Amino acid sequence: MSETPVTEMSFEAAMAELEKVVGQLERGDVPLDDSIKLYERGALLKKHCEGKLKDAEEKVAAITLDGEGNPTGTKPLDVD
């Protein structure tokens, strides 16, 4: 399992690790304490991926198109 902080991971890296975590949990051959740690890491990874997807969706939604379907710019996003 990676020790990279979840908040520093790209969407792709977090998704790949989440898939590994799920695979380990599904096999059922991990001791209980390790399963709990894996589940906690998986929950963090899932939340991180959802946040990255939401950000991407907002960016795509902010793109405006002209009459021919070409992007004309973006609307400013509220960044907290």
Rank of each mutant, 00 (worst) to 15 (best):
L18F: 08
D80K: 14
E8S: 02
D78S: 12
T7K: 09
S10V: 05
G69L: 09
D80A: 11
V30K: 06
V21G: 09
D66Y: 01
M9C: 02
A62M: 09
T4R: 02
D29C: 05
G23K: 06
K59H: 03
L18D: 04
D55V: 10
E12G: 00
D80N: 12
L65D: 07
L65C: 06
S2I: 04
T72M: 11
D78R: 14
L45M: 03
A56Y: 09
V79F: 08
D33K: 10
L44Y: 07
V6W: 03
T74R: 13
E40Q: 13
G69C: 06
A14F: 00
S35I: 01
A62T: 04
E57C: 08
T7H: 07
L44C: 08
E40K: 15
S2V: 00
T64A: 14
V30T: 09
G67N: 12
G42N: 07
Y39E: 15
P5D: 06
D33M: 09
E3V: 03
L45G: 00
E50D: 13
A14E: 03
D55Y: 10
G42C: 08
G28A: 03
G28T: 01
V21R: 03
T74K: 12
L18C: 02
V21S: 01
I36Y: 09
G69Q: 08
A56Q: 14
A13H: 01
F11K: 00
L65K: 14
S10E: 01
E3I: 02
M9T: 05
D33E: 14
G51I: 09
V60Y: 03
